[in-house]
Simulated scan of single mutants.
Amino acid sequence: MTITQHIKNPNILVYGETLIDEFPQQNVIGGAPFNVARTLSLFGARPLMVSRIGQDQNGTAILAECARTGLSAEGIQIDAQHTSGRVVVELASASNTDCIEGGEGTEGIEGIEGTTTTHRFHILGDQAYDYIDAQLVTTLMEKYYQDAPPDLIYFGSLIQRNETSQASLMALLEADITEGASKFLDLNLRDGQASLETIISSLNYCDMVKLNEDELAYVIQHACPAVAGTAIKDDEVGLRLACEAVMAEYYMQAIIVTLGARGYFYLDANGICLHSLDQSPAAIEIVDTVGAGDAFAAVFIYGWQSNWPIEKTLTAAHRFATTICGVRGAVAESKTFYQDALQAFEQMPV
């Protein structure tokens, strides 16, 4: 099977940071939204990435990665004053037996064997992605979405730390031209990078949210007044009660909680509750856990847009997130990797 590029208008809009993760041994292109957009593109979807980079070597590398993965760079603005995003990463060791969800900003994620992977991310401030120009975004929207909005708009919290990019996002989410698009929030909280006001606003705008256990606990404690102070039990009953509280507060369609090595917990407005709590974690040799959560989000969006049954969508997302832990970086170098994954998705029972 061959993944072909489409010439139709992009029907998924990904808004957020593109950046360089500076690991001790190497630099890796990253940013959760960019990881999601690249993965979707490699699967043959039609995402449009909206971000901003500097006129520098890192910006050139980001544009080259767009070309390599077939991702349109039309929505990536060039900033003559600010540098491309940078994150300085410190890390320790990782378990080689169980896949753990990791990602930009993750700290102290413990595996089944008790080995801890520690990624400490120092996210530099005042970067190009903090200054996404609203007028340029509007022009792009008018070019592609006069007849119909994108199917889905993906956004997170880091991109909202600066009022310029936050205002551009709010204008996008509130625009008449994007009315009808589903809003997917990948919360991705980073220490000191998002205010409570931003978190509450984001939850109010989204139709679906993906967050991890720590983020769910934070939302329950600080953004759900009706249940503030309630401790979350990490079993099926406790997670369901917590998810129901968030959904009741923010009237969203679905909530996805990623559970590290235990997989996921899903609840939607129709009362469908699915999880992998009873499944044994897949054994895999861990190469790098960074980007596993982004891989999950990308496949969930791909399955949602492809009208897969929700059971298949979640299973495929979980399996792919596990698989991506076996390669270096959030996005594999080999395009065959994605062709093989698509074949495996197609062979899954409906």
Rank of each mutant, 00 (worst) to 15 (best):
S202D: 06
Q221H: 14
T118V: 14
L189E: 01
W308H: 10
M247C: 11
I100K: 01
Y15K: 03
G85W: 01
A228V: 12
Q5V: 14
Q343L: 15
T178L: 02
Q25I: 10
T289E: 04
L277P: 05
A134W: 02
E90I: 13
N35H: 03
H275V: 11
L172V: 02
A134H: 09
E101D: 13
H82Y: 15
A242T: 08
G70N: 00
G111F: 11
P24N: 06
Q55W: 02
A32D: 10
G70L: 00
M252C: 14
H82N: 11
E163G: 06
I29D: 02
L203V: 13
R328I: 12
R262T: 02
N204L: 07
G102Y: 05
S280I: 14
L158Y: 04
A217M: 03
E22P: 02
Q77E: 05
Y15N: 05
E104G: 10
R161D: 04
A231Y: 10
P150Y: 06
L274E: 09
E213A: 13
I286T: 15
T289I: 13
H122L: 15
V350R: 07
L140M: 14
T313I: 09
K312W: 08
V209Y: 01
F300D: 01
D79Y: 01
V89A: 07
L169G: 00
I220A: 09
V257A: 05
I3K: 00
P281F: 06
S334D: 14
N9V: 15
Q26W: 02
I301W: 03
G111Q: 03
A171Q: 13
R86G: 08
T230Q: 15
P24C: 07
